[in-house]
């Protein structure tokens, strides 16, 4: 490949953008998480997030969250244009504080689930989901 000045410049800009992008995306999630937790410390025990390691298609990704004793679980997709995915509020007749749904992921990213427990504490779980761009899928 002929390395012209234009090529080199484009590659440099490209890698600079790539380096900044995930950082910006993560910052947006940090703000939303802080808004939910009020800056409180977030533990990691007592919450499960089940998501595929590789999503067959980013348009429909099945996930499941479970946090026994939680009042609310919020799910974020750290790399989506807007990170909020869903907020699950459990009522008195919820048998277990768990829910499954299907979400859209714009690209490979962390999916984060944070629960506010009945005692006011917060716990979180996160998992990276790889989202592939198809080859000849048309």
């Amino acid at each position: 490949m002929k390395l012209t000045r234009r090529h080199t410049l484009m590659m440099a800009i490209g890698s600079a953008v790539a380096a900044i992008m995930p950082f910006r995306a993560f910052a947006a999630v940090e703000d939303e998480i802080a808004a939910f937790t009020g800056g409180a410390e977030v533990g990691t025990a007592g919450i499960t997030l089940i998501a595929p390691e590789i999503a067959e298609n980013g348009n429909t990704v099945p996930i499941e969250v479970n946090a026994p004793g939680a009042e609310t679980i919020i799910v974020f997709a750290a790399g989506n244009p807007t990170p909020s995915v869903a907020t699950f509020n459990f009522g008195p007749l919820a048998a277990s504080q768990s829910a499954a749904t299907r979400i859209r992921l714009a690209g490979t990213q962390d999916v984060v689930a944070i629960a506010r427990m009945a005692d006011g504490s917060f716990v979180q779980a996160s998992q990276e989901v790889k989202v592939t761009i198809g080859g000849c899928g048309g």
Partner: peptide, 23 residues
């Protein structure tokens, strides 16, 4: 694989198909 697509035999016994890609 062709890029990230896992190639099938292209059978059509399952058509019409609900594609996750376009829901």
């Amino acid at each position: 694989n062709i890029r990230a697509d896992h190639l099938s035999q292209g059978q059509i016994n399952g058509f019409p198909t609900y594609r996750l890609k376009n829901a």
